[in-house]
């Protein structure tokens, strides 16, 4: 088997001088859906932010290889251009910028960085409409300002929409299921499943098992106190659902 798409070795990171990630080891292969589960405060969001390159997270040790490259040495926009996408837990509002413009500008910025030609507005719109239909979203959505005045569910669906349009190779979904009702959860899951293919890896970060009923993971990893405490298959998620995280909490 070839090298995994993503390899994390002994990753340590601090926020405000407090160590949150205490030596993470994890690899995710292309085509794999890896679920990372854990109690609140275990470092799930820190891990996704570190992978995406957000300021304020200091990596103190370890390395992250992505597609043969040193991911941590790259700027956030360079990571994006090489195919790293993060679906935000709290998507940000950008008043005055419509969704269609935002997403197309992002897509073309990435394409430009990869030396590809720009997608024109008409081709973009065609693809966007098809994606929206799949996500059961109204076309009107393209003309609305990015996340401004969106409900929680709409914001999360917008993340999935952007993911579908940007076609990343590594998608990190940071608690995408939080705050969703059952219908929205099903729609989001459909959107995520549509992204599954042998070239792409998905890292699904979640507190609950319920998203995994729809997006069935290939591997499940329990993050507790800044380390991967246990890894397994889908059964592990079901076990956590029954027994909770008590076994992994610091005494």
């Amino acid at each position: 088997m070839s090298e995994p798409l993503l390899t994390i070795r002994n990753l340590r990171a601090s926020v405000d001088d407090k160590e949150v990630l205490k030596g993470i080891d994890l690899s995710v292969a292309a085509g794999e859906v890896a679920a990372i589960m854990g109690p609140n405060g275990s470092g799930k969001s820190t891990l996704s932010n570190v992978l995406a390159g957000r300021d304020g997270y200091e990596v103190t040790d370890g390395e992250v290889r992505y597609d043969g490259q040193d991911l941590l040495a790259m700027e956030p926009e360079e990571r994006a251009a090489t195919g790293v996408f993060m679906a935000f837990q709290y998507p940000v509002e950008i008043p005055g910028v419509v969704n269609a413009t935002f997403t197309r500008t992002a897509l073309n910025a990435q394409r430009k960085a990869r030396g590809e030609s720009a997608i024109d507005a008409i081709d973009f719109l065609k693809g966007a409409r098809a994606t929206l239909a799949r996500l059961e979203m109204d076309e009107d959505f393209l003309r609305r300002d990015v996340n401004a005045g969106f409900s929680g569910g709409e914001k999360k669906r917008n993340e999935i929409f952007q993911m579908a349009m940007l076609e990343p190779r590594l998608a990190i979904l940071d608690e995408t299921d939080s705050g969703l009702d059952i219908d929205a959860l099903r729609i989001v899951a459909t959107g995520v499943n549509a992204m599954r293919n042998p070239e792409r890896a998905l890292v699904v970060i979640t507190h609950y098992q319920r998203l995994l009923e729809y997006v069935v993971p290939d591997s499940v990893h329990v993050l507790a106190d800044g380390r991967i405490a246990r890894s397994g298959d889908r059964e592990l998620a079901l076990e956590l659902e029954r027994a909770g995280y008590a076994a992994f909490q610091p005494a």
Partner: peptide
């Protein structure tokens, strides 16, 4: 910073 990072994560410098 959150707005800036959101845009950068999507590929904008």
């Amino acid at each position: 910073d959150a707005q800036l990072f959101y845009c950068r994560q999507r590929g904008l410098d």
